[in-house]
């Protein structure tokens, strides 16, 4: 028996539903020695901005119980250098490249970025990151800045504007740092997003009690890893019952079992993030693991698993 792993996200056809999450896979070349990159369903680039960003001051990461905090601050070479130097490297993987974009200045920058990427055949899809907790300037470091993905109206406006700028598959990446994530997912769907990605990191903080210093220079950062998995699974389940477009689920997926949780809660595809740092072969192992699970349980198509959790309500 053979199990079918392929899945469609908008116009994008993926041979399997496992991708590498934005910001956790370098520019893919860092992983070429560990795994056959061609196995992946897709790669998502580090989030790109129009201008280069040097990112936040160090220390940028620390470990927390079953997780880690990061405040990288979207360090990236800017759109032009990305297209010239990094995109060709990502394309060499031989799998669809999803380019993640963010704006430092409001939605017109999103539109400009999407417009430029729309012309490139190497770009398989665009993910708009409206949920990065690390993009405020360090001047206001302790001050939390409202994210686009914390406001359904702003989410709708940005997605709508970007939708007009590109015919490519459009994915909206949502933040868990909200009261009701379904509102944001519905706004993205109404505005024409082809899919939603969730979750980005959960805002967190950690203190070194010996020095009374925050463990990362920006004081607060984004929590990722197994520690956030139950939050992510819950949000996928909530969103699944409110929208029709596919969900790309992520948050603490470490292995096949945790990947399956996301499909059962309602994800059509998954992204592997922090796990790449601990086991750089994680994505490849999960792809093999999913196929084995399907065959063992006589399930013909992974789509049969989506939303299959046996919950009453």
């Amino acid at each position: 028996m053979k199990a079918k792993l392929s899945i469609n996200i908008g116009k994008l056809k993926l041979k399997n539903p496992v991708m590498a999450a934005s910001g956790t896979f370098g520019y893919a070349e860092e992983f070429s020695g560990f795994m056959d990159l061609k196995k992946l369903g897709a790669v998502v680039s580090k989030t790109i901005t129009l201008r280069p960003r040097q990112g936040n001051p160090p220390p940028r990461t620390c470990e927390t119980p079953a997780g880690m905090l990061n405040s990288i601050g979207l360090e990236n070479p800017g759109l032009d250098a990305f297209i010239n130097c990094k995109l060709p490297v990502l394309v060499k993987t031989g799998v669809p490249v999803i380019v993640s974009i963010a704006s430092e200045s409001g939605w017109p920058e999103f539109v400009e970025l999407a417009g430029c990427l729309d012309k490139l055949k190497e770009v398989a899809a665009i993910e708009i990151n409206i949920s990065c907790p690390n993009i405020r300037s360090t001047k206001h470091k302790a001050q939390s800045v409202k994210l686009i993905s914390q406001d359904p109206k702003a989410t709708y406006e940005v997605v709508k504007a970007v939708r007009r700028a590109t015919a490519k598959t459009l994915i909206t990446k949502l933040s868990p740092n909200v009261t009701d994530i379904t509102e944001m997912a519905m706004a993205a769907e109404r505005a024409g997003s082809d899919a939603v990605s969730l979750i980005n990191t959960v805002t967190g903080m950690s203190v070194d009690v010996a020095t009374r210093q925050p463990k990362i220079a920006c004081v607060t950062g984004g929590l990722s890893g197994p520690a956030i998995r139950p939050i992510a699974v819950r949000m996928v389940w909530e969103v699944y019952r409110k929208i029709k477009i596919p969900i790309i689920g992520m948050g603490g997926i470490m292995d096949t079992a945790s990947a399956l949780e996301f499909f059962m809660a309602g994800a059509s595809a998954i992204s592997i993030g922090t796990a790449n740092f601990i086991n750089p072969r994680a994505a490849a192992e999960i792809i093999t693991g999913l196929e084995r699970f399907l065959i063992k349980n006589k399930i013909k198509d992974i789509r049969q698993l989506i939303g299959s959790v046996k919950s009453e309500n």
Partner: peptide, 8 residues
């Protein structure tokens, strides 16, 4: 966090 250039 990674040791091989991926996380920045």
């Amino acid at each position: 966090s990674c040791g091989f250039g991926a996380c920045l």
